[in-house]
Design a protein around this nucleic acid. Structure first.
Lengths: 149, 149
DNA sequence: TATTGTTATACTCTATAACTATA
DNA sequence: TATAGTTATAGAGTATAACAATA
């Protein structure tokens, strides 16, 4: 049997929540990539697609704010999604500075497809986490997200 | 009174653990930067310093493996720490391919200083999380880290 | 033949500052 | 004067492939 190699001690790092969040997030990120492998989808893009889907007509700034993405960085991300035919970008009639974003039919399909894959992967990763564990996890993370620096 | 602006709905994203981990991790990352502001310390470097501190004589590969950092990326990171005088890099007498890393006196001081600041910041962030919450949080994250893709 | 460290390289995410056009 | 979007740019983290030295 291949012995389960002991990893080196982490030192003071072991007690820091920030470190564990980083590692756990990174693991889920790798799993995301595996789940949607070869589809050209990334976490950020999926996030934007999801927000646009839930808020038809939203503009770049609002979408970015909901996701913690800076305006300047939204530009090329939105362009990627538009070029891929997943979202539609039209000048907002009520405010000609802004764009009204909406998800396309293709976007809906891709979003659903990715969501299925990612959900399956998360289900597999969290197979040994019962309903209580999952609720606790999401609950704790939401409380962290709501914090102000 | 400044009204608490409602953020846009997240859509399907809301139910994904990976998304919440990403946001929570990012928030702690920003807090880390604030905690050690101006010291030139970063999460990755702090991690390496911590592991080297806990494992005197460890080599780059082992340290990287404990932290999920690729060998190729360890090179410049270790060089940064050596150049900053925080760790010492000497050819390992038992294996002349490898370097034996150890923390310097200055490294010990910086590590302790940073740890104090970061701990204070984490304590402030988690002020409304009681002992049970914290144990649950760290416990859940450790279980995630232990998962295999 | 496997492993340690190295170099080169590329991609992604994020951050800031300065600009335009509209409000 | 403030806001939406844009451009340019830079820093940081991470990924792969190919290589030399040593085991």
């Amino acid at each position: 049997m291949p012995d389960a190699q002991e990893s080196a001690a982490l030192g003071p790092l072991e007690g820091l929540v920030g470190y564990h969040l980083r590692r756990a997030s990174s693991l889920f990120g790798a799993d995301f990539a595996r789940a949607v492998g070869g589809m050209g989808m990334r976490q950020v893009l999926f996030g934007i697609l999801s927000v646009v889907s839930a808020n038809p007509g939203i503009n770049q700034g609002e979408a970015g704010r909901a996701l913690g993405i800076k305006r300047a960085n939204m530009v090329s991300l939105i362009t990627e999604l538009v070029d891929a035919g997943l979202i539609d970008r039209q000048t907002d009639a009520d405010d000609r500075r802004a764009f009204a974003l909406s998800i396309t039919a293709k976007g809906v399909k891709i979003l659903a497809d990715c969501l299925t894959r990612i959900s399956e992967h998360e289900a597999r990763l969290l197979a040994e986490f019962d309903a209580t564990d999952r609720k606790a996890l999401i609950g704790l993370l939401r409380r962290i997200e709501a914090l102000e620096l």
